[in-house]
Design a binder for these strands. Structure first.
Lengths: 101, 101
DNA sequence: CACGAACGTAAGCTACGACTTACGGCTGCT
DNA sequence: AGCAGCCGTAAGTCGTAGCTTACGTTCGTG
């Protein structure tokens, strides 16, 4: 149960998510397309799995990973909240910014 | 402008964004509520500004920061794309090697 | 005009995370 | 049964992000 945002913070993990968005892939497939080794991909997938962003499935001797809709929706909703709150205080440029008296 | 996701990857920066979602704040205000020093907050705000997630406004001797709707919308849209693509390959659990049973 | 408040930047240190190599565990062929 | 392909984990190295202290700058106020 990691924060979730830290999972996407790393460029390699973001690259993995982008590849998995196209289609589910095995660990070796991802390692071939990325400039990092296969163990590195495994470690990243462990983080992504801990964050609930991906799910894995044993398929023969391979392990196929794909994106988890629920995990992605959680982040999207939180980001959507930020976006809405940003629109609220958008027009009142200068208003109340004092506290102590 | 640069990473975008790396900006939100840091816990301190995420905390800043959450505070700015409530209302615009000055640098000193944020530093008082966070367990880090004021220069640290400035450095984080510089990253967030570079990512287009916040905008600043000089107000007297203080600098008021608030969230940028456009920057947040960009990340949200990309995350929303991931979410939709995740739903596509959700029901076809086994894609390959499902010919023979 | 001088002082203080608020902020950004420079310099430096420390800790953590990302990566590699090496190893062991499964699974599925022949 | 034995071998080969895939994968996760351990151990260790190294770069860098994040933090602090110190300093310079700007703006407002007496």
């Amino acid at each position: 149960m990691h924060p979730g945002w830290e999972a996407l913070g790393d460029p390699s993990r973001l690259a993995i998510v982008q590849r998995l968005a196209e289609r589910p892939r095995a660990v070796g497939e991802l390692a071939d397309e990325l400039p990092i080794s296969r163990p590195a991909v495994s470690q990243h997938l462990k983080v992504l799995k801990g964050a609930g962003l991906v799910v894995d499935q044993a398929l023969g001797t391979r392990r196929v990973y794909r994106l988890s809709p629920v995990g992605l929706a959680a982040l999207r909703d939180q980001l959507d909240t930020f976006w809405r709150r940003a629109l609220d205080g958008y027009q009142d440029v200068v208003e109340e910014t004092e506290e102590s008296s």
